[in-house]
């Protein structure tokens, strides 16, 4: 077990270096000059452009820029934005917001997704099951931004039940709607996955044994069926956290949540390399760690899996 974790942690190093390099290169491949863009349509003073370019190290060869960036990164220095703020400050403001949003989405996904899936799975082939399948199919086929704008338009602008924009991200009531929109797609997948594993395991031999033992139905479903059915679902949920952080770019835009998605979007518009690479680097780290945790959790849930 310990060796397995050590190996996985070591594997993270090349993945980490590789992803940061790719992101770094991609930012520089983008057409246009970010420094020149600061002046917009107005004529820029070449001396000023050159000095700014020098300040952000953009006059250096690309490999030098990458090495410098990584060197600073390992000292905890994520660089500065064009506005002169420390990237680390920007991130420490926006990451908690996104984490709260993700947590809200996760809770909705778990409760609604697994609940709906279990409900349908126990009634496989009946009307309730078909209803859930159709509903999830609709959710899956509608793009998130359509769903998001629709939810905002109906619930906030027309009915006025919720505030259209999130003013205070520590208020979970305000985060509910964006969280729900963010969760919708994954929730539909979780519901379908849960439904299938429930319906499948319902026919398993050990379920027949559990019945023959004279156990009450609540125990048969709640212990014997649930433990077996949750194994694939938990794996999906784990990998989904990464998806939520990425998906937040769209959802945060719709509901004006000042999270990391918004930060990334603005940085992309301004082609601000240091912010983009910084944010994505943290994304990568979070996803790597979560994947490791999910794999370890997998072994806890399923004793047939052993890591050596």
């Amino acid at each position: 077990m310990g060796r397995y974790v050590a190996r996985r942690l070591l594997q993270m190093i090349p993945v980490f270096i590789g992803t940061t390099l790719i992101i770094f290169l991609m930012v520089h491949i983008l057409p246009g000059d970010p420094i020149r863009a600061m002046w917009g349509d107005k004529a820029a003073d070449p001396a000023q452009v050159a000095s700014l370019r020098h300040e952000f190290g953009l006059d250096q060869p690309l490999w030098k820029q990458y090495v410098d960036y990584m060197g600073n990164l390992f000292q905890g220095d994520f660089g500065k934005t064009f506005g002169g703020r420390e990237v680390i400050d920007e991130m420490s403001e926006s990451f908690p917001v996104t984490l709260r949003l993700t947590a809200v989405a996760m809770i909705i996904e778990i409760i609604v997704g697994i609940g709906l899936g279990a409900w349908a799975g126990l009634r496989a082939g009946k009307a309730a099951d078909t209803g859930v399948l159709i509903f999830t199919l609709i959710v899956i086929s509608i793009p998130v931004f359509v769903l998001g704008f629709l939810a905002r338009f109906v619930l906030a602008d027309q009915l006025g039940w919720v505030a259209p924009n999130v003013q205070d991200s520590t208020d979970y009531a305000q985060l509910f709607l964006p969280g729900f929109v963010l969760a919708m797609l994954s929730m539909a997948y979780v519901a379908r996955l849960t439904r299938t594993t429930f319906a499948e395991n319902l026919r398993a031999d050990y379920m027949r044994t559990a019945m023959a033992k004279g156990l009450p139905r609540r125990r048969i479903v709640g212990v014997h069926l649930l433990r077996n059915s949750l194994i694939p679902v938990v794996t999906f949920l784990g990998t989904d956290i990464g998806g939520f952080i990425g998906g937040a770019v769209v959802t945060e835009g719709i509901f004006n949540v000042q999270g990391v998605g918004n930060l990334l979007f603005k940085a992309l518009q301004q082609r601000e390399g240091s912010t983009i690479v910084g944010v994505v680097t943290v994304f990568v780290l979070v996803i790597l760690v979560i994947n490791l945790l999910v794999d370890l959790l997998y072994a806890v849930l399923d004793p047939r899996i052993r890591y050596a």
């Binding site: 031999d205 044994t209 023959a212 433990r227 077996n228």
Partner: peptide
């Protein structure tokens, strides 16, 4: 009480 044929699949694998 009942004894089933295939004990591997008849016992719950995760308990």
């Amino acid at each position: 009480a009942m004894i089933f044929q295939d004990a591997l699949s008849s016992l719950n694998p995760v308990l």
